Amino acid sequence: MSKNSNGLLIMKWLVSRSWEESRLLWSLAFPVLLAEMFQFSFEFVTTAFVGHLGEVELAAVTVAENILDTFAYGLLFGMGSALNTLIGQAVGAGQLDRLGTYTQQSLILCGAITLALAPAYVFATPILRLFLHQPVDVSRAAGQYARWAIPRLFVHAMDIPLLMFFWAQSRVWTLAAISGVALAVHAMLTYIAVRQLGYGLPGAAVAGDISQWLIVAAQFTYLTGGRFPDTWKGFTMHAFNNIGAFIKLSLGSAVMICLEFWYNTSLLILVGLLKHAKHQLDIMSVW
């Protein structure tokens, strides 16, 4: 066989293997991408409806979502990302039952962080006005929205560990379907609360709370429905064992990820210091 023939066979093999690997990659990556797009679209839907209420309300939601919520979500996601490392080690060692235990440890840790962050939502108005020097009327409206959005903070504490658990086992299409349905419900509830009933910012916040809790409820139903016999054995007190080591690993993970999330937060804070800040914040909400 000639060298040209050998080269052609090798090229065909490389193309075939590349296509196969690409197909496998996209079969996992596409539903994850779809689920993330659905979840990030929640803010877009809320902003679209609140934008009809007025420039102060639009700026307030922008501040609450991109300063308070992004700060909290970045911290929780960073702490929860340590679960990826531990789950990979457990799978490699053949200790599949540890996946459930590690997930519960992450739930405990994220829940504790959420309790520590909740006062920031309660006192959002003075924090935004006195410490971050945001406009007075925007700070007041953002504080009202943030107080009604506190239930959503606890959703983040549960949603992130559950996502890590499902991602590790390639159960991604179910997550995409749950997020898609929840987004449709969110759009309907926000329309009813804001446009039909006229509940304004509290209505928009509560609509978001309900929609986000639907996601977690569906995830827990999927988790405990017997579809993970090897990795989920139910809740156990073993989750409290070695939790100090879990916290230490989570802190290291959080430092890297928080910097990425908090970039946009710092940008919004600086925009709020500009002249005609309400208009600038409104522009940032569209961007």
Score class of each variant (00 low, 15 high):
Thr265Ser: 13
Gly111Ala: 15
Asp230Thr: 12
Asp69Ala: 15
Ile283Arg: 11
Ser2Phe: 02
Thr125Ile: 01
Gln280Arg: 06
Phe154Met: 08
Met188Leu: 15
Glu57Val: 01
Ala146Ile: 08
Val172Ile: 13
Tyr102Ile: 11
Asn84Trp: 03
His276Gly: 03
Leu259Met: 13
Phe40Pro: 00
Ser41Leu: 09
Gln105Lys: 15
Ile150Phe: 11
Glu55Arg: 13
Trp213Ile: 04
Trp232Glu: 04
Leu249Thr: 12
Val181Trp: 00
Phe44Met: 12
Tyr191Trp: 14
His276Met: 01
Thr62Met: 10
Ser139Leu: 02
Gly54Pro: 06
Asp230His: 12
Asn241Cys: 04
Gly234Glu: 09
Glu260Thr: 15
Gly78Met: 05
Pro135Trp: 05
Lys12Asn: 00
Ile160Thr: 13
Leu83Asp: 04
Ala93Met: 14
Phe246Asp: 02
Ala142Met: 12
His186Lys: 14
Gly54Tyr: 04
Thr62Lys: 00
Ile257Tyr: 04
Ala184Met: 11
Gln134Phe: 08
Phe235Ser: 11
Gly111Cys: 13
Gly7Thr: 00
Leu28Cys: 10
Leu33Asp: 02
Ala142Phe: 09
Leu273Val: 05
Phe165Lys: 10
Ala193Arg: 03
Asn242Asp: 15
Met37Phe: 02
Ala141Ile: 09
Ile108Pro: 02
Ala60Cys: 07
Gly80Thr: 14
Gln89Asp: 13
Ile192Pro: 01
Leu201His: 02
Leu153Val: 14
Ser22Val: 04
His238Ile: 08
Ile243Trp: 07
Thr103Glu: 05
Leu130His: 09
Val255Thr: 11
Ile178Tyr: 04
Pro126Gln: 07
Ser81Ala: 14
Ala60Tyr: 05
Met164His: 15
Phe38Arg: 01
Pro119Gly: 13
Met237Gln: 07
Cys258Phe: 07
Asn264Leu: 06
Ile10Gly: 01
Ile178Leu: 04
Phe42Met: 14
Arg195Thr: 14
Thr224Gly: 06
Val32Ser: 06
Ala207Arg: 10
Trp287Pro: 00
Gly94Gln: 09
Leu189Thr: 06
Met79Gly: 10
Val185Pro: 00
Gly94Phe: 03
Gly100Asp: 10
Arg152Asp: 04
Trp26Ser: 03
Ile247Lys: 09
Asn264Lys: 13
Asn241His: 14
Pro119His: 12
Gly54Cys: 04
Leu53Gly: 07
Ser18Ala: 15
Val32Thr: 08
Gln196Ala: 12
Leu9Ser: 06
Val50Ser: 05
Trp232Lys: 08
Trp148His: 14
Asp97Cys: 08
Ser22Ala: 10
Ser266Met: 10
Leu99Tyr: 02
Leu223Ala: 11
Thr174Met: 08
Leu96Pro: 01
Ala48Asp: 04
Tyr199Ile: 14
Asn242His: 15
Val206His: 10
Lys233Tyr: 10
Met79Ile: 15
Ala204Val: 11
Lys3Pro: 00
Val271Cys: 10
Gln95Ile: 01
Leu183Asp: 09
Thr224Leu: 08
Val194Ala: 06
Phe71Pro: 05
Ala217Lys: 05
Gln280Tyr: 08
Leu53Ala: 09
His156Val: 13
Leu109Val: 15
Ala90Trp: 09
Glu21Ser: 02
Ala120Arg: 03
His133Leu: 06
Tyr222Phe: 13
Pro126Gly: 12
Thr221Leu: 11
His238Gly: 06
Val50Gln: 01
Val32Gly: 02
Ser179Glu: 04
Leu249Ile: 15
Leu223Asp: 13
Val45Trp: 13
